[in-house]
């Protein structure tokens, strides 16, 4: 196991109203098998012992499935490795002597609460506006009694892989939430269970997305490139179609 020495420049901000700035820290002998968050744990332990405030950051599962973690590492959401969350990024992707700049995910709809901690409840409100199935379908039906072509179910599963981390918004040059919203609309629009509320869902979720102050998509593809779950912009094309069709026939 090898170890590296690092210089960290981390965004520190007391609360939503305070002005923040980058603070510089040095960390020695970081094992390359550590995850990025474990490296931050080591830093926080050091800061605590020195009587300073530890760096606040979000995390929960630390296995890439909950969507709580995330930060901008040297300008890239979730860091340099493809299709991993920050908790699954390992220090072996950095070199001895590297300077790493760590900033919180930013968007008009994401107020910074403290340091790297942000308020992503705007994404929750998009889900609350229609990302569910609420029709009463009676008792549990027999397994396989609703036939679903495997291609459809695979596409729905691909969309359902979105963990709501919000990296797509943070990396979008326009701060658009289209990749997230399109994944949440697609996962239900592709399945029979989602059909009853299909149109209202597309209308309501896009309306909420616009209301939260997310930007307009210009098809820049940055979201897809940083998404830790490999959500494809094909979902955005699907959302555009869903929305157009719903608006023409429902609204």
């Amino acid at each position: 196991m090898s170890s590296i020495n690092l210089t960290l420049k981390i965004w520190r901000q007391q609360n939503s109203d305070a002005l923040g700035q980058l603070e510089t820290y040095t960390l020695d002998a970081i094992h390359t098998d550590m995850s990025f968050l474990e490296m931050l744990d080591v830093l926080n332990e050091k800061l605590t012992k020195e009587g300073q405030d530890p760096v606040a950051f979000d995390h929960d599962c630390r296995e890439g499935i909950c969507g709580m973690c995330g930060a901008i590492i040297d300008g890239v959401a979730h860091g340099p490795e493809k299709e991993v969350t920050l908790c699954q990024l390992h220090m072996r992707h950095f070199k001895d002597g590297d300077t790493i700049v760590i900033e919180p995910f930013r968007s008009r709809a994401y107020p910074v609460k403290r340091d790297l901690l942000i308020d992503r409840s705007a994404l929750d409100r998009i889900i609350q506006s229609g990302g569910y199935v609420s029709v009463n379908t009676g008792g549990t039906v027999d397994g396989n009694s609703i036939p679903i072509p495997s291609q459809q179910s695979e596409l729905a599963m691909d969309a359902a892989a979105c963990i709501g981390c919000g990296a797509c918004v943070a990396s979008c040059p326009n701060g658009a939430a289209m990749l997230f919203t399109s994944a949440k609309v697609s996962q239900l629009a592709l399945l029979p269970q989602g059909q009853v509320e299909r149109k209202q869902r597309a209308l309501a979720m896009v309306e909420q997305m616009d209301k939260e102050g997310f930007g307009n998509c210009t098809n820049a593809k940055e979201c897809e490139a940083v998404c830790p779950k490999g959500i494809s912009i094909r979902n955005i094309a699907r959302l555009n179609k869903e929305y157009l069709f719903a608006a023409m026939t429902e609204g």
Partner: peptide, 11 residues
């Protein structure tokens, strides 16, 4: 409603 939405403007 369609044209005042973000997707409508893209359309």
């Amino acid at each position: 409603r369609l044209l005042s939405s973000s997707i409508g403007k893209k359309l």
